[in-house]
């Protein structure tokens, strides 16, 4: 089945088996291997990408369900020469060890700051009738869908906090 995707600004037309997940379309068909396959069941967050600016697990969605959608992967955020500020912050704060979960963490982190900016509350937001705060507790709760087996969590929160501070 044919599907058109705009990935990191570039339009693609793919002919895919209906079973192909968005993750497999990115990795196996477009050879964008920055997005990682961890659990392949929506539990670990390694496959997190942005679709029309919203973070999702690319393993739990079919590519054919994304006709015309704009997908942003880690490759679309920055390059080794020109890192995205969130990528640079992860490097500065040592927000990883093996690095396998990192592309998902970074995509998720960028979306988390947008979600807070839009006023979307979280489980730890104290008052629902106002805007959520930009606290470490908020960042930790909002990043729970990204698991890091190396346990770089405290440095990840530091990296996101730095970028959040520079945005505020």
């Amino acid at each position: 089945m044919k599907v058109r995707l705009v990935v990191n600004g570039t339009p693609h037309e793919l002919n895919l088996d209906t079973r192909t997940s968005l993750l497999d379309a990115l990795r196996e068909h477009l050879h964008l291997t920055g997005t990682k396959k961890g659990c392949d069941h929506g539990q670990c967050g390694a496959c997190t990408v942005l679709v029309d600016g919203v973070r999702i697990n690319s393993c739990l969605t079919l590519a054919v369900m994304h006709e015309g959608d704009r997908v942003t992967t880690i490759e679309g955020l920055g390059t080794p020469e020109r890192l995205h500020p969130m990528q640079a912050a992860f490097v500065r704060h040592d927000g990883y060890q093996c690095g396998y979960c990192t592309p998902g963490q970074i995509c998720s982190a960028i979306a988390v700051l947008d979600e807070i900016n839009e006023g979307i509350p979280s489980h730890v937001t104290e008052r629902l009738d106002g805007a959520p705060e930009l606290s470490a507790d908020e960042l930790r709760e909002r990043m729970t869908g990204n698991v890091c087996r190396c346990g770089a969590y405290s440095n990840i929160v530091d990296a996101i906090s730095e970028i959040a501070g520079s945005r505020a």
């Binding site: 929506g42 997190t48 973070r55 999702i56 729970t144 869908g145």
Partner: peptide
């Protein structure tokens, strides 16, 4: 907000 993760709630 007590359920799932941000990514899952978005979908």
């Amino acid at each position: 907000l007590s359920g799932a993760s941000g990514q899952l709630r978005n979908k």
